[in-house]
Design a protein around this nucleic acid. Structure first.
Lengths: 113, 113
DNA sequence: CTGAATCCAGAACGATACTG
DNA sequence: CAGTATCGTTCTGGATTCAG
C-alpha cells in the first residue's frame, strides 16, 4: 500500500477534513459545538465520522458520565502531527477554489512535419 | 465551503493520490504504464479517475493520433503546486502505516524498571 | 493500446424517529 | 445532549464486452 493511501484513507470521509480543521483551530469541542460548525451534517453521519477518526487514532473522545451527557473531542498526537499537512491542503484550496473547471491547459498535438 | 474540502474533493478518489504521486515521481506516463503501477485497478476506473483529475486541472492528457493509440499523462501546474502537500501526506503515511490495518507491527512498550 | 458502454454490488451518506 | 436504529437513496468502483 502506497503511503499516501494511508493518509487518504484516514482523511477522506465527507466531513473528516473539516472536523480535523476545527479541532485543530479550537482545540476541544463538544459534539454539539462541532455539529453547529458543520452545517448540513446529520447526527448519525457526524457520529460515524468521529468514530472512524477515533479508531484511526486521530481524535480523542472524552465522555463525561453525567446528565445531560457531555462528550468532548480533540486531536490526539497523531492528529496534531497532521496539522502542517492540513494547513497546506487549506492553502491549496484557497488558491484554487475559483479554479474548479475544465480547460486547464489541454494540449493539442502539433503535426509532425 | 471550507478550503480543505476543495483539496479533498480533488484528491479523494480511490486511486487519485497514487496516480498523482507516480506522475510526480516519473513526470510523464502513458496510460498502460500508469495501469501497471496501480495493481488491481480496472481500465474503466483508471480512465474515470484520470478524467476527473483532468477536469479539475491537475493533470494534462496528451493524445497522439496514431495506431495503436498513445496517451500520455503528466501534472499541470496546478498539479505541481500540490507536490509539497502530497509529500507531506506520504511522510505521515510512512510514519503511521502501523496504525492502519489489523496486524501491525505495533510499538513495544519499554519495560519500566 | 486506449477507452466507451452496460450492468451491478456494496459503500457512503441522509432523513427521521426513538432512547437514556 | 449525544447518541442508536432503520430505511432509503446516491455514489463509487469493478467485471465484462465492444470499438477505433
Amino acid at each position: 500500500m502506497h503511503p499516501i493511501e494511508v493518509t487518504l484513507d484516514v482523511v477522506c470521509g465527507k466531513w473528516k477534513g473539516v472536523i480535523l480543521c476545527h479541532l485543530q483551530e479550537e482545540g476541544i469541542l463538544r459534539f454539539g459545538e462541532l455539529k453547529k460548525r458543520l452545517p448540513g451534517v446529520s447526527q448519525k453521519t457526524l457520529t460515524l465520522q468521529l468514530r472512524e477518526l477515533e479508531e484511526d487514532g486521530l481524535v480523542n473522545r472524552k465522555v463525561y458520565p453525567q446528565v445531560p451527557p457531555k462528550v468532548e473531542y480533540s486531536l490526539t498526537e497523531y492528529g496534531t502531527e497532521l496539522e502542517a499537512t492540513l494547513e497546506m491542503m487549506c492553502e491549496w484550496g484557497i488558491n484554487h477554489h475559483d479554479k474548479v473547471g475544465p480547460n486547464s491547459d489541454s494540449q493539442l498535438i502539433e503535426k509532425p512535419n
